[in-house]
């Protein structure tokens, strides 16, 4: 049981664990592990609270359907699983500003939250444009050898590496 209280596992143990998880996800639920559709559904669901049923008629929500679904529950599970892991190892703590961010851009929580929000807009928009994220394309799609997912995953990292260089080498 010491394994469960360790703060970090090797990336290989974690990766193999996620790979095996993907077998069972296919076998039992016939579905790859993916996340970003649920955020689009949540976004539509929140809009529906304010603007009513007509939101469901938007063509995009006609396609993905505004339901919680298996994948929404999966995302909820990720929060719980991470919380359990962090609590077991004593790695849970409230934090506004990550240390690497602080070393480059300072300790202001307000600045960090504003930039995180802007990053989130691009991330959510890009995930829907590409039809998936680091889980759906990056892991589940590439392991099925999907052409769409290999192209997307490579572009995630090209865009990510270039933008990070710009942020940390040019702006900071």
């Amino acid at each position: 049981m010491e394994l469960l209280t360790e703060v970090r596992w090797t990336p290989y143990a974690v990766g193999i664990g996620i790979g095996i998880l993907s077998w069972f996800s296919f076998l039992i639920s016939r579905e790859p592990i993916s996340c970003s559709t649920s955020f689009a559904r949540a976004s539509g669901g929140i809009e529906r609270l304010f603007r009513g049923k007509k939101v469901e008629l938007k063509p995009y929500y006609q396609e993905i359907k505004l339901v919680v679904g298996w994948q929404g529950i999966l995302v909820l599970g990720i929060i719980i699983g991470s919380l359990i892991s962090a609590l077991l190892s004593g790695d849970f703590h409230w934090q506004w500003v990550p240390s690497l961010w602080a070393s480059a851009f300072g300790n202001s929580p307000v600045l960090r939250v504003i930039i995180a929000l802007i990053g989130g807009v691009f991330l959510g928009f890009g995930a829907r444009w590409a039809g998936g994220c680091t889980s759906g394309h990056g892991i589940s799609g590439t392991l099925q050898l999907a052409v769409s997912s290999w192209i997307s995953a490579i572009c995630f990292f090209i865009g990510g590496i270039l933008m990070t260089q710009f942020l940390f080498k040019v702006i900071a």
Binding site: V75, P98, G120, T134, I158, M163
Partner: peptide, 29 residues
């Protein structure tokens, strides 16, 4: 879409799956 996602990935520092994990870890940003 992949390149736009990458820009967001760099600016935010999390992706849709890991952000759920980050929330569970207590990260308020």
């Amino acid at each position: 879409g992949g390149l736009i996602f990458g820009v967001g990935f760099a600016v935010l520092g999390y992706c849709p799956g890991t952000i759920a994990g980050a929330i569970g870890n207590g990260y308020l940003d």
